[in-house]
């Protein structure tokens, strides 16, 4: 591009538009993060379903793999940020949304683990407890610990929100479709037992992250190949 060249108003506007478009076409997510979370959550959910359905235990809490996935995710994020030649305004907004999502999920996990015990203690202090009562009187009444009702539905609901925002901001249809399917799964999960909620969770992780991740990865590799050929 020459340093100084006479150009008119129309050419100036064309130049501005073409540069803005060049930036837009430079953003390419590698899809690694989406693939990682999509696999971790769907594997955990489907294995939990199998454990409940066929009454076995694999020897450890499978959801620990979701926690373990945080380490590679941090490494991937640091590497990708280093490789990035520019930071867009969208990136900042999306980072904030996904950080808020992660905090919300961990908050919900804490709620799931803390609230039942705390509720039981509070109930004891007040001098009462929850009782399981069989309407057909086939079993005697038994005391039970409090538990949050259908909390998996809330997890499914939360999976959809950052996905939908990302899909809308990035104009990435697979994520928008994934989020809409996940909202439908949330509604369905309100009427089903834990076992089926796990299947819905697994499907939600596949449609929100794993499938969009595969599409992003494919595009990313194609572009990398094109760039290599152009060099």
């Amino acid at each position: 591009m020459p340093e100084e060249k006479e150009f008119n108003s129309e050419e100036s506007l064309q130049l501005i538009t073409s540069m803005i478009n060049k930036v837009k076409s430079s953003y390419h997510d590698s899809g690694t993060g989406a693939l990682l979370w999509g696999s971790a959550v769907s594997i955990s959910a489907f294995i939990t379903y199998l454990e409940v359905e066929y009454d076995f235990y694999i020897g450890f809490d499978i959801w620990l793999i979701v926690l373990a996935a945080i380490i590679p995710q941090i490494v991937i994020s640091v590497r990708e940020n280093k490789r990035k030649q520019f930071k867009s305004h969208d990136d900042l907004a999306l980072d904030a949304i996904w950080i808020t999502y992660a905090i919300t999920i961990f908050g919900l996990i804490a709620y799931q683990n803390i609230v039942p015990g705390a509720t039981q203690d509070l109930n004891k202090q007040e001098g009462w407890s929850l009782i399981k009562h069989y309407l057909d009187k086939s079993h005697p009444d038994e005391a039970i610990a409090p538990f949050p009702l259908s909390i998996t539905s809330i997890f499914i609901l939360i999976y959809a929100f950052p996905t939908l925002i990302t899909g809308i901001i990035k104009k990435f249809r697979p994520m928008i479709v994934g989020a809409i399917i996940t909202y439908a799964l949330f509604v369905a999960s309100c009427f089903t037992s834990f076992k089926y909620d796990m299947i819905f969770s697994g499907i939600a992780a596949l449609v929100c992250w794993f499938i969009p991740g595969l599409i992003l990865r494919k595009r990313y590799l194609q572009l990398a190949k094109q760039k290599e050929q152009n060099v």
Binding site: K5, L15, K24
Partner: peptide, 29 residues
């Protein structure tokens, strides 16, 4: 109102920040 400076500003208005190498690649300067 200079082709290259306007190109640089148009790139920078669309992003939060950009590296020199990125600007060089996109402007072909």
């Amino acid at each position: 109102h200079s082709q290259l400076r306007l190109a640089v500003m148009s790139l920078l208005i669309s992003v939060k920040e950009a590296e020199f190498t990125f600007i060089k690649e996109k402007t072909n300067a």
